[in-house]
Simulated assay, not measured.
Amino acid sequence: MTLPAAPPPSVAAAIRGALLTADPLAKARATRAVARDWRLGRLAAEFDVAMPDRPARPAEPELLPPGRMPKRGRGQSERGRIALWHALAHIEFVAIDLALDMAGRFGAAMGRGFVSDFLAVAADEAMHFVVVARKLRALGSRYGALPAHDGLWESAAATRHDVAARLAVVPMVLEARGLDVTPATLERVRASGDSGGARILARILDDEIRHVRIGVKHFVAAADRCGEPPAELWKSLVSRHFRGSVKPPFNDSARESAGLSRDFYAAVAMPQRAG
């Protein structure tokens, strides 16, 4: 007698499992496995379990409020270089959870294409984390050796009820800010003679342009379903759900490549102070 094949696990259960994996490298591996299994049709498109309110975190790094974080400097000294790459590692680590939660929390309503897009983003962020953590180890340190802040996940928690708000804040504010600041960081790293580090940052920048483009695509579709102009809806949601400020300088060319025109952000940008 042949027993019937067991049904494939649900994509929601697989995503939840990755979110609840605390060890950073294990989370990166689990995330890439989820993305691969979904792409290969090994996961059922079922959302039968809820996403956790907060993903699992390792014991280190110590998480501080953003205002208590020590100043990092410009990365010229060995200590400064380690602080720079540690900060980047933390951003990429939290970005894994942001993309996983996006797919798992909103995928049932948003459909297969949305899930595929954000699981692909999560796999990219996992790869970024592994590469940056390896760079950090080459400098004689490790992820967790320095404190980090929890502001990125706070933005996710504030928008857990509304996919349009999440898209407005996470890809279109937080990730878009990376498009603004990464080129200058890349040039400083290259000028210091670290060609390997510059290649890492160039790859991350290219991927993040695509990630913002994915966020903009799904946000515009959500705005169209609501019958609201995308730029006006974005401004309204950012003013309600983002506690920080949208501030220049902007990398307009990278933002434009990602589909994020100045119609969205110019009117809400905080003026840059002279000096």
Score class of each variant (00 low, 15 high):
residue 154 E to L: 14
residue 117 D to P: 10
residue 14 A to N: 05
residue 31 T to K: 11
residue 57 R to K: 12
residue 29 R to C: 05
residue 68 R to Y: 11
residue 71 K to N: 04
residue 118 F to M: 08
residue 53 D to A: 15
residue 141 S to G: 04
residue 75 G to I: 03
residue 157 A to W: 06
residue 116 S to W: 08
residue 49 V to Q: 01
residue 87 A to Q: 00
residue 71 K to M: 06
residue 160 R to I: 06
residue 160 R to N: 07
residue 115 V to E: 01
residue 79 R to S: 09
residue 154 E to A: 15
residue 94 V to H: 04
residue 15 I to D: 01
residue 65 P to F: 12
residue 22 A to Y: 02
residue 58 P to I: 04
residue 27 K to H: 03
residue 46 E to Q: 14
residue 138 A to H: 06
residue 145 A to P: 06
residue 32 R to L: 04
residue 27 K to N: 01
residue 75 G to R: 00
residue 83 A to M: 03
residue 52 P to C: 05
residue 116 S to P: 09
residue 126 A to P: 13
residue 161 H to Y: 11
residue 14 A to G: 12
residue 44 A to P: 06
residue 82 I to W: 00
residue 27 K to V: 02
residue 78 E to Q: 10
residue 43 L to S: 09
residue 35 A to R: 06
residue 115 V to Y: 07
residue 37 D to H: 15
residue 85 W to I: 03
residue 70 P to W: 08
residue 38 W to F: 15
residue 159 T to V: 05
residue 114 F to A: 01
residue 53 D to R: 12
residue 84 L to K: 04
residue 116 S to F: 13
residue 110 M to R: 15
residue 118 F to R: 07
residue 122 A to W: 03
residue 107 G to R: 11
residue 160 R to P: 08
residue 154 E to S: 14
residue 60 E to N: 09
residue 35 A to L: 05
residue 71 K to W: 11
residue 158 A to T: 04
residue 39 R to K: 13
residue 101 D to G: 09
residue 63 L to F: 11
residue 54 R to N: 06
residue 26 A to S: 15
residue 48 D to W: 12
residue 120 A to G: 15
residue 97 D to E: 04
residue 105 R to Y: 07
residue 67 G to V: 14
residue 150 D to H: 15
residue 121 V to D: 02
residue 142 R to Y: 14
residue 112 R to Y: 09
residue 157 A to G: 10
residue 95 A to Y: 03
residue 54 R to S: 12
residue 28 A to V: 04
residue 119 L to V: 09
residue 134 R to G: 14
residue 99 A to K: 06
residue 99 A to R: 07
residue 48 D to T: 13
residue 79 R to I: 04
residue 145 A to C: 05
residue 14 A to C: 11
residue 112 R to I: 10
residue 32 R to Q: 14
